[in-house]
Design a binder for these strands. Structure first.
Lengths: 205, 205
DNA sequence: GTGATTTACTGAACAGTGTTCAGTAATTTT
DNA sequence: AAAATTACTGAACACTGTTCAGTAAATCAC
């Protein structure tokens, strides 16, 4: 029977309607600044209706976070990162793509990383799921670089450094910490790219 | 007349009472998780009373943030950083002190950096005030290192890298991102120290 | 010492939040 | 046509930050 099919489709459409509005709002106003009542108003449904599709605000937010991660991943693909055969060049491209994406979408960065709720132990496994892919891909690339003797050092330490510096640069940028150093936005963007290049040049064998 | 003196003292005591309780709560529960009503209950005053001492929640939070920064600065002093004459050794010590402090006080880290409210443009200048000292001190140290040819590269780019990697490592640690890489807490702590040492060894001339 | 004034504080209210649940109206099944 | 399921909502609960009129105490002026 096509009825259950249609119902399923309608349910999915409703989910999409909620997500679309919620995505804009979370991005614009952050987690705490976004109210379910306002989301409900914009999709022209009662607030209670959202609870028929999402357990609570956190569950909805998780789907938005997921969307951000997908955007990030797709930006890697757009930059042609996965198809780069040379692992060192792939690493370079990964770093630049990461910097570029977060400079272009600072709000996404905030949603993905700057919201750690105090509770919900179970959520961690979910968040790891979101992180997981990127982590594995970086690991593989670094390991391949070491195997081909393109960089040298401990695999874990290098990953920590690479992740640390790229993520750290993004954090500084998104927090506008460069302002405290009397640096303009455009300068900061150029600096970030150079910083990553310098770092690469130094770890290269 | 000693009355105004005493009044001033009492006012200061009240402020301290509020801050002490608020500090614990903000640290434990974060900004959004902390309610002024609960703070009021703990100091045994009405919620409205807090507004006689602080304009709003943000203003109170700012003082708490300040306290965190002071703790951080004092940890630098405890580590004897300012008295290290060799600028490269000072840089090394600064990095380790920064890592150590944030590993020991992850909640402080969250309060200091992971809370940027969407509004309050004016607050930025205040936050810069909080940041200011650390920024200048790092700059001086890096410049001195370059002058004495202990490290080489562009001053701004190096500062960005240094700040980026140390801050980035802390961010990863505090967010427990290492869990996504299947690494334990103790391992991560060791890794962070090593990562910083490796970085230093590479920028050294 | 007494009355006026300033100070310190509070109870109650306002507008907002996330969340729950009984109840309703429409749709689908029997 | 009646019964059962589904989709949805209005109203309520318990919270939040914040404001403000009102009160009681401390201080000041005489």
């Amino acid at each position: 029977m096509g009825i259950t099919e249609r119902k399923e489709r309608e349910k999915e459409e409703m989910r999409k309607k909620i997500i679309d509005v919620a995505f804009d709002m979370f991005l614009e106003e952050g987690f705490e600044g976004t109210s379910l009542r306002e989301i409900a108003k914009r999709i022209e449904y009662s607030p209670a209706t959202i609870y028929l599709y999402y357990k609570d605000k956190e569950a909805l937010f998780f789907d938005i976070q997921k969307k951000c991660f997908l955007k990030l991943i797709s930006s890697y693909k757009d930059a042609g990162v996965p198809s780069i055969k040379n692992p060192f060049e792939r690493l370079r491209a990964m770093g630049h793509a990461y910097l570029k994406f977060n400079m272009k979408n600072p709000q996404c960065f905030n949603l993905m990383f700057l919201h750690n709720s105090p509770m919900s132990e179970f959520k961690k496994t979910d968040r790891m799921e979101n992180h997981g892919n990127g982590v594995g891909f970086l690991k593989d690339t670094v390991v391949e670089c070491i195997e081909k003797k393109m960089i040298k050092g401990d695999q874990l330490e290098l990953r920590m450094e690479i992740w640390g510096i790229t993520h750290g640069l993004c954090t500084l940028y998104v927090n506008k910490s460069y302002e405290a150093a009397g640096i303009t936005k455009t300068q900061a963007e150029e600096l970030m790219k150079n910083a990553w290049e310098n770092f690469l040049a130094r770890i290269k064998t």
